[in-house]
Design a protein around this nucleic acid. Structure first.
Lengths: 230, 230, 230, 230
DNA sequence: TATGAATGAGTCTTCATTCAT
DNA sequence: CATGAATGAAGACTCATTCAT
């Protein structure tokens, strides 16, 4: 009947037990493995089953550690999730953002096509990115939706929407496009197909179908559209 | 969002009794209500939390029935999920498929643009479609992925991929596109943005942003691309 | 990683599961047994180990039911504790209070001696009363201390302290006594020795030593004190 | 309340090294500090939550050491508890005993009133005494009950009960009293009210209510009883 | 036909304890 | 001499499922 409330996520326990908050620097190399292993295992499970449906046992089994060890490292399930977000997801998500707002001097065409290149390169390097983005960022009820809404989208929206509309007004961009939906379209042409790659590959056995095909295809489509004959 | 109860089974036969799915024989009509109520509640929960993370208790609470009643109607959790798929999801998924392979005489342009129209109309009518498609069909580990891989995609792929490649060879379609990825692109320009509509609406407060804007935008993009000034 | 918060104590579950709040009337007799059995078992464990140190398993084992059954009956450990308080303890505690404030017309002597009688009669009938009062009501950190401070003592204090002081002023009560401590003294001469009865009995083997001896002794002491020879 | 750290071991030998309890040989003096700190912290926790409900982590947190350090010093939780008893509790409990059997030449009146004075003085010096006595010595299932039954009460009982009965027979003591319960009554008039002091103080805000009031009141009550007007 | 009662298995979490260093 | 790392056992609680009625 001890109803003592658990310590808040990410905070070091008040009893001097457990490492609580991640302590990156200065850790003996021998111990980094198990914590990092757990983060990687958690990431894998999140991708495979979704964050909400992943249990600590799933992760512990995947990482080859005991559930109690996960509590030792991360205090609780929320702490583990937060650690994965902070140490695995955010650095990459941050790169998504940086790819867009980091090229202010370029022409809009360079920005947009550069964004496609950039997303594809990130997916190449971090194959989990597309799956997690689709399920946890975009999906209703996704665990990371708040990250997009609060931390990433507002800035991107503010910077790019006005510019897009401006280019349209100047006749330098297809006026039929909706400025508010353009960035989404680029994601829909890159991360979305990338999340389904295993499916498409399965549908075309014997043929190579990789992220680079998605990149080329997306660039061709946004370049001139379908170019349907009249 | 998505709190509107889904419309009654779309695959219902012309006699209005709706035998589109297996229904235990001998049940009085008066009880169909509670079964249908449970299916609707389950669909809502699936959209909200994802299929894997939804518990029977969630559904029972949402439907206002006891968990035991769900067992009575559907035998077990898998049976309920299968019933939702068969009686709620498949009729709509079937329409997705029918929209594509049902117009063999039309030109490819008509087929592709018709597909965009069709998807948007379906989302309009069944707001849960985009969310569920994104999370459960496309996502790795999605509960409905098998449906796409085994029942829908092969036929579509067989019919359309060859035709697309043919049109490209004949110079009637942008040769830079990848025939294998074209259908995916159209979904990525419709269902994917639709799944995020609540987010985009939140980012542009005071402005109407609805499925019709997605449709117009997608048609403009596939029509001629970005039309960037040289 | 389902971090859904548990339903609040004593409240009926929102999912239509479990009886939640105690439902006294109208229950089939066959089922009353197990719930009441659990309450009795919990009371025994509380007396034996203290409320804070009692686990659900202790109680379940004592009652001969599974821990899950306790959750079914009482939602959670706090709910069980609250039920024991509400259905077992409070009725008796209420009698402690009623014994005092229920005799306004009597002389103070009658009230005080009546209180001793009353406490001893209650202990006779509810042997757990003294142990629980000593450990959980009076002890620092006791789980029921709030009950005394907030619900019982203020009224008793308000009614009796003034009267006691008045009688002292009128010379009808030992003026050396502290009006604020008189009621406590009576408890210290009844419930406190009663809680230790097993010890005293053990120390005087072969002799009867029961609550009635405590009553007689307490009445003699408050009657005329030690009556020490000068 | 009771946040004042307990004074250093009372049973310490005349040489100031305090061998009153078993102390692993060969430990440098510099480390005694941390051990003593842990004992004090444990005592505080025992008072606050009760011995059975106190965890090693509670104590470690309170003492500002790691749980592993407690194991290093005391082998296990039982060893820590035994050390607290031997080095903190027993010296004071011993004084309770010594106060009674140490004045064989005095009159019974002096012994009894001296006992009240003595208990109050001990509580004054060791505020934890009353709480621990009430909860762990007297309460059913109390962790220290054995101490009273086996080590303290028999001797006191043997020496005093006979004497009390003798005085009664000689007409020098209220014959209505029960010789077996007289010592308990004195405790019930001192330690018991003392344990509840925080409550009574809370009930009479603005008034000083301290151990000395308890002493005066108890002496007045045992002196001549209530002195109720006929 | 339907459900209230009950439970075994599984989830997250905390605990005392161990051990290599 | 002392502790950070780790864990098995036990804690509370939830879940899908069963079954008598």
């Amino acid at each position: 009947m001890n109803t003592k409330p658990p310590s808040s996520p990410l905070g070091a326990g008040p009893d001097g037990t457990g490492p609580g908050a991640p302590r990156q620097p200065g850790r003996p190399a021998g111990n980094v493995d198990r914590r990092a292993l757990a983060l990687d295992a958690a990431l894998q499970c999140y991708v495979r089953r979704g964050i909400a449906a992943t249990t600590l046992r799933d992760i512990a089994g995947q990482a080859g550690v005991t559930p109690a060890a996960l509590h030792y490292y991360f205090a609780d399930a929320a702490g583990l999730r937060d650690a994965v977000i902070a140490e695995r997801l955010m650095p990459v998500f941050e790169q998504v953002r940086a790819g867009l707002i980091g090229m202010p001097d370029a022409s809009l065409g360079q920005v947009l096509e550069g964004f496609i290149d950039h997303l594809c390169a990130l997916v190449q390097e971090h194959p989990w990115l597309s799956a997690l983005w689709i399920r946890e960022v975009v999906s209703e009820g996704g665990s990371l939706r708040g990250l997009l809404v609060e931390r990433m989208a507002p800035e991107i929206t503010r910077i790019l929407t006005a510019r897009i509309a401006g280019e349209q007004a100047a006749g330098r961009l297809n006026s039929g496009l909706d400025p508010r939906l353009l960035m989404v379209s680029l994601v829909g042409l890159t991360l979305f197909p990338a999340a389904g790659l295993p499916i498409w590959q399965q549908l075309f056995p014997g043929q190579a179908l990789e992220i680079d095909h998605i990149r080329t295809h997306a660039l061709a489509l946004v370049g001139r559209g379908l170019e349907l004959a009249e």
